[in-house]
Every structure is written in structure tokens, then in C-alpha cells.
Computed example of a mutant assay.
Amino acid sequence: MIWNFDRALLIQGIDQPKALSYLQELNLDNHDIIAGIGDQYVGDNIENIPVFDLVTEAINTYPEIKTTLIFSHPYNVLNAGLEALEAGIKQVIIYTENIPPLDIFKLWQKAHEKQVKILGTSQAGILIPDKLCWGVNHSNLYQSGSIALLNYGDSVISTELALFLQKHDLGESIVVNVGNDKFITIDWDFWLEILAEYESTKVILISISDCSNIEPEQFINTLKKVKNKPIIIYLLDPKNLKFIIQNNGAKIITDQIPQHLNRILSPKHFQDYLEKHGITVIREHQEILPWLKKQEFLTINE
């Protein structure tokens, strides 16, 4: 399975506040967005983007659409996703947060049956500087470069990293926010292959806000598949406070699943495990620059 970067995007939940904010931030100049679906009736268009009642209507009018970006209300995401799958959409990016876990599982199961790729949930998006922006906020802070960024956590982290890199005249080849949903297992193999094979990528930077849901051995095996592209892990939340504070919801669902509970690692143990296998791990973003200076193909402006 590959990811199709054809520039034809549908937005579902185009009437939701975050979707409207996203459109305004783009200054209505994102020609990738060619159609929208409202959670409620909103008329024939929003910000000059034609709005349809059904995904099938949008696809019939614009058959080039292959990807949908979902901003729908959390309780509407399941229906929006299923409607997109039935209409023939092959790529789904879900920005919406706080979706009921059972709805997520149902949507993922149906997507697997139909061989549809889902990115997200919770602030997911893809950006290629100066070329494409699907769901990534503050796209003006990203500039073209050679660092592929894979962010597992709040999207603000990738924004902060982009701003930091920009100050040192560094940019990104491609950015993927995989979301921050604790109930979803990330397809690291798929996304790392996308980043590594992108033509401008020379270095891969992976930021991880919460390692508690990552199976370390499988993660290491995935990293080892990437050849000739140095990888650095930016591990946030060293005391695992986010997991401790937010884990009550996950614990209710997973109390009867020992395998899940047994996989939980502290950031310290996760870091030790990665470093034992030769993976560079940093805890402060300022450490990125010294590491990059060691890569002979990168020049850092002080």
C-alpha cells in the first residue's frame, strides 16, 4: 500500500470551527481543497469551496478526489468515515480529537477490510513545504529542506520544531503528524517508508510525546529497516506525566487486556532500550543541532 499525493482533497465537517479556522489560516489559497461536506446544512459553498450533502455527490462531481480530511464533530466521525469508505475514498486523514474509542475501532476495522489507509486520529496531517498542506496548522512556519519529521503527539510539537529549525535556516522535506490517540497503534513501517523514500529526505526526526503505547522491539525492527537515512528520536515528557494524567480512560477499556498493560514502559526504559540498539535519543530540542552538525551533508547556520 502506498500513499497517493494527488492534489485533490475533500473536507468533511467543513462547517466545524476548527475546519473554518484551518481554511482561514490558509488564506483560502489551498487549491487542493476542491469540495466539502458539512455536518449540518450550510448551503452550496463555504469560502468559495462547493459543499455537498453526500460524499458520493462530491466524488461524482470531482472523481479525482482520493483523500478526505475529517474535521467532523467527534460523534459524527464514524459516520463520516464510513460514508467516505463506501464512496470509494482510499485515504482518510482524521484531525478530530476525543472520538469515542469504540467508534475508532469500528472505523479502523472497516478501513482494513476495504484496504483504506487512515492517518490519525487527533490532529493528524501531512505537509510538504511549498507543495501540499493537508491538515497541518501554521504551514507558513515550515520551509523546504531535507529533514523528514514524523510527529507522534500534539501537532503543536511539529510546529515548534519547524519554528526552531527555521531559525537555523533548516527545513523539512515532508512532515507527518500521526496524531496522539492512545487507542491507535501507529503503522511505523508504513510512515517511515514514506518519509525515507521521499526524494529530499536526508535525515528523519521522530518526536514522541508518549511512548507508553509503543512496543519497543517492533519499533526497533522498523527503524532498522530504514537504510542510509540517519534517525534521531526526540522523546518528550521524560516523567511520563501525560500518560499518568490521561490514562484513566484507557485503563477502563484495557483493564482486561494484560498484553496492553504489560507493554507500558517509562520514557527512561524506552530511551535505554533505543540507545542499547544504537538509536540516538534526545530530551531537549536544542540537542538537535549538535547532532545534525555531525551529519556531514548538513550545514547549520549559527
Rank of each mutant, 00 (worst) to 15 (best):
T201L: 04
P50T: 06
K227H: 13
Y198F: 13
G120T: 13
N228T: 05
N98D: 15
K251A: 08
Q295L: 03
P50G: 00
V226A: 05
P100I: 02
Q256M: 12
I194Q: 12
F5D: 07
E97F: 08
N221R: 14
V136F: 04
Y95H: 03
T201Y: 09
K276H: 14
D210M: 12
E284Q: 12
T96N: 01
V51M: 07
F164H: 11
A250F: 14
Y95P: 01
V55H: 03
K18N: 13
S122W: 06
T159D: 12
C133L: 01
G125K: 09
S200Y: 08
I118G: 00
F105I: 05
V77Y: 03
V156T: 00
Y152E: 09
L223W: 00
T159F: 06
Q24E: 14
V55K: 07
L20H: 00
I232M: 07
N45L: 10
I300D: 08
W134R: 11
S212P: 02
D189Y: 14
L298T: 00
A196V: 08
I89N: 04
H31G: 02
V51K: 06
N98P: 11
G145R: 00
E215R: 13
Q40G: 01
S122V: 04
T254E: 13
K202I: 03
I104E: 13
D272G: 04
V77A: 07
S72Q: 00
N240V: 12
I206P: 06
F71N: 08
F52V: 10
E57T: 09
I104S: 11
N180F: 14
I206F: 09
D29S: 15
G38W: 04
H138V: 00
K114E: 13
Q143W: 05
I126S: 06
L85H: 03
Y75R: 13
